[in-house]
Structures are given as C-alpha cells and as structure tokens.
Amino acid sequence: MQKTALVPHARLPRAHHDRHVLTSIVDVFGVAHWLLTGRAPEPGVDVQPFDALVVSVHPDGTVELTELSALRTRWPHLDRLPDGGFVVAASRTRRYEDGDQVQVFDALGRETWTFSVGDAIEHLLVDDTGEIWVGHFDENPLGIRRWSATGQLRWACDHAPSAGWIMDCYALNVSGPVVWACPYTDFPLLEIRPDRPDRPMKVRANTVKGAKAVAVHGGRVAFYGGYGEERDRLAHAELTEASVEPTEVGLLTLPDGTLPGRRRVVGRGSRIYVQAEPFNAWGVFDLGG
C-alpha cells in the first residue's frame, strides 16, 4: 500500500516544552497555535479560572506569545480570529458554564464576550471572515452550525433527506466561502455554502466511512482516517455532481515514515494538518501541492 508522508509545518519552540499542552490548532491562515498551562488539569476537580499562554508559530517561523486571562474550561477548543483575538470553548457544558461556554478574547488576551453554542463540541473552527463553525458529536446531535464572534447563530444545517441523520460531525473542513463536512451516520460529503440561500448545502453520496478529516481541491477529495485497521488510511476520490467516486487508497504517515498513534487533525481547504503525541509539532498533507 502506498505511503504518503506528512511535510513538517510548525513546531512548538523548545523553550515551552516544559508546559502542558491543553490543545492546539492550525488556523485558516496556516498559523499554528498551542494553548499551554503550567500543569495538566486534575480530573474530577472543579476548574477555577486560570491563566494560559498561547504560543503562535507563523509559516515564516515568527513566534508570537499571547497571555489569556481567566479561562474556565478543562478540555478546551481553540482558534484564532482574523483580528488577532482568540476563541476558547468548553467541549462539554456544565451548569457553571451556562452562558460562558465560549470565551472570546481580544488580541491583548482580555475577555470581551461570552456565549454558549451547545454541549458536545467535536470541532470548533474559525473561517477567514471570523465566523465560528461548530460541529457536535452524538451526545448532542445538533449537526453543524455557524456563529458570529458575539454569539449570534448565523446558520444551522437542515437535515436534508439525502444526507441522512447528521448525528455526529466526524470531519469538518473550514477555510474560505465553502465548508466541507462528512458526518455520521451515512457519511455523505456535504458542500456547505451558507451565503447561497437557494442551495446552501449540497449532498454527495460517499462510501468512505469513518474519516476524521477531509481535504478538497478542484474536483478531487482526500479522506483521512477510518475505523480499526483503516485508522491511518488516506483515501483519494473524485467529485461528481451527486457522489464521491474513490480512486485509490494508501496510508498517511509522519514525516519519518511512522504512523501517528494518538493525534489531532484539522482540515483547511486542500490541506489536512496532523499533530501526533506529544503534540509539539504539526505536519501537513496538501492535496493541491
């Protein structure tokens, strides 16, 4: 089976390796961000507000540091807004987080807004206009929704009959005006264009099951991940008007040729970013490159 190696993209500077990585993301502009604390959160202990450091590594290697004050979640999602601020969200809601599940910070790390988007966040990704896309997992099957940075619901997916039940947003790709998703249970490929009121969502039938990330370039698509032995699968396909037609299947590896093990994945346009444990480096596969 053909192997494709990730290309190194960004690395956490060694000076910060002594801190605990709460989470990490690659934003819509290709900048990698790490949310760091002094130590790992203690399971079963109520979270008290704490400060954290965001280390941002730009594609040219420039490093930027931002202190965020009074975070209130143990298991956060993170992304950056185009104005330099950050969004931090709790993946699970608790009573003490009602109304402040999502915290919005300005470029100086000061909290400016809070709101809630619903329990069971699988993905939280900011697009190039500053809109926040949230995909939920099956403990709260809200599907896929788009929010403003001030908590206004902009768009919500309708459960189109041809898409089946959108119960769990397995893969979400957010970059420019088009958002792509591949949800459980039927795993259709959804092409979402919310600014087209006549047809905001196009559904393509798809036989590639269980992918955790998707990349699209022109008429081609790549799916990464799957169930069981297909965990490291990289499946290529072509887009037709109504379906996804598989063409070849291989494996996606780390730059050194090994398989990732535990990892984070992010889909952005033609790119799939992968970060393997200990979560201090990002690699990239570019379908367009």
Rank of each mutant, 00 (worst) to 15 (best):
M1C: 12
Q2D: 14
H9V: 00
A10T: 02
L12V: 08
R14T: 09
H17T: 04
L22K: 07
L22C: 04
L22D: 11
T23F: 04
T23E: 03
S24T: 12
I25P: 00
D27M: 05
D27F: 08
F29S: 15
G30V: 06
A32P: 04
A32V: 09
L36H: 00
L36Q: 05
T37G: 09
P41A: 10
E42S: 12
P43E: 07
G44E: 02
V45F: 08
V45P: 00
D46A: 12
Q48R: 13
V54C: 06
S56A: 15
V57D: 07
G61L: 08
L65E: 15
L68F: 07
L68I: 08
S69K: 14
T73K: 03
R74A: 15
L81H: 04
F86T: 10
F86A: 15
Y96N: 12
D98E: 14
Q101Y: 06
V102N: 00
Q103I: 02
Q103Y: 01
D106V: 11
E111R: 15
T112D: 04
F115C: 04
F115R: 02
G118T: 11
I121P: 08
I121T: 06
E122M: 14
L124Q: 02
L125A: 10
T129Q: 14
T129L: 14
E131N: 13
E131I: 07
I132C: 09
W133E: 02
W133I: 04
V134A: 01
V134C: 09
H136F: 15
D138S: 14
D138M: 13
G143E: 03
R145C: 12
S148A: 04
T150R: 14
L153A: 09
L153F: 08
L153Y: 02
W155Q: 03
D158T: 14
A160Q: 13
A160R: 12
P161L: 09
S162Y: 01
S162H: 10
M167E: 13
Y170S: 12
L172M: 09
V178A: 09
W180F: 14
Y184F: 15
T185A: 11
E191P: 09
R196K: 13
P200W: 01
V203I: 13
R204Y: 08
G210T: 08
A211V: 04
A213C: 08
A215P: 02
V216Y: 06
H217W: 15
R220A: 13
F223Y: 15
F223C: 03
Y224F: 15
G225K: 07
G225P: 09
G226Q: 08
G228S: 13
E230L: 14
E238V: 14
L239T: 02
L239P: 01
T240K: 03
S243P: 03
V244Y: 01
V244D: 08
P246K: 05
V249H: 11
V249P: 01
L252R: 01
D256I: 00
D256Y: 10
G269A: 11
G269P: 02
R271S: 10
A276N: 00
A276G: 07
E277G: 07
P278L: 05
N280V: 13
V284N: 03
F285R: 01
D286I: 04
D286T: 01
G289M: 10
